[in-house]
């Protein structure tokens, strides 16, 4: 299984390019099992949503 360090990298790269099948698969498996990386994934998601709405109201 990939380490959290490798997974955080995949999460970030997933923001900027389409991940391959194997990458998505190993990412999904890791996220299912790892709450810390799930929270990191959610943080990146929040960042994106926030910036798309910039400058806010």
């Amino acid at each position: 299984m990939k380490s959290c360090k490798e997974v955080h990298r995949l999460v970030i790269e997933g923001q900027d390019r389409k991940l391959g099948f194997t990458e998505r698969f190993s990412l999904r498996v890791h996220l299912m099992l790892c709450a810390a990386c799930r929270r990191f994934d959610a943080q990146m998601d929040l960042l994106r949503q926030a910036l798309r709405r910039f400058p806010g109201d």
Partner: peptide, 19 residues
Amino acid sequence: GTGHWQEAPGDWGDPAKVL
């Protein structure tokens, strides 16, 4: 050294509410 988080990422909560 083993690739684990030194400090686990925090829970930022529901984006809809935060924003």
